[in-house]
Amino acid sequence: MQPHLKKAFTLLAIIIIAFIFVRSIAVPDSFGEYGWYRGDSVNELRNQPVEHAGSQACSDVDCHKTLYSIWSESRHKTVNCETCHGPAEKHVSNVRIMPEPANDSRDFCGLCHYKRVARPGEFPQIDPVTHGENLRCAYCHNPHKPWFV
């Protein structure tokens, strides 16, 4: 082979080797641990903080046991505490951090209970114009134990 071509190919080889070398340093150690991805990222994502504690967390004797037992036998038992009261994990782990107050406006209850044509017909719905004279729903209905005025 001609010397100038030899030089050109040597140069090329050096570049390629340098690339392989840099690559071996730059690729994260956990890459390929489980598949073609960075294995550490699985735990990074698992470590994301939990925000919603779940209703069970409210039932402690020292906390909202009474309200919990009323609610858990009511027709609203399928509605999780945090669905109305908002995420409360921070409050559960530290009671000094108060969760935001529950939204008790008519429109909030209406998210489920205003009459809407797309809702399953058997689901309890009211016409917000004719029902309840614009009073807050909780004026008549206990949200923790509905159907008892």
Binding site: M1, Q2, P3, H4, L5, K7, L11
Partner: peptide
Amino acid sequence: LALFSYDISEKALEADEKL
């Protein structure tokens, strides 16, 4: 740019052309 090789003899150019 010439990679410090200055061979432009006919033989060298022939090799170039081939490549």
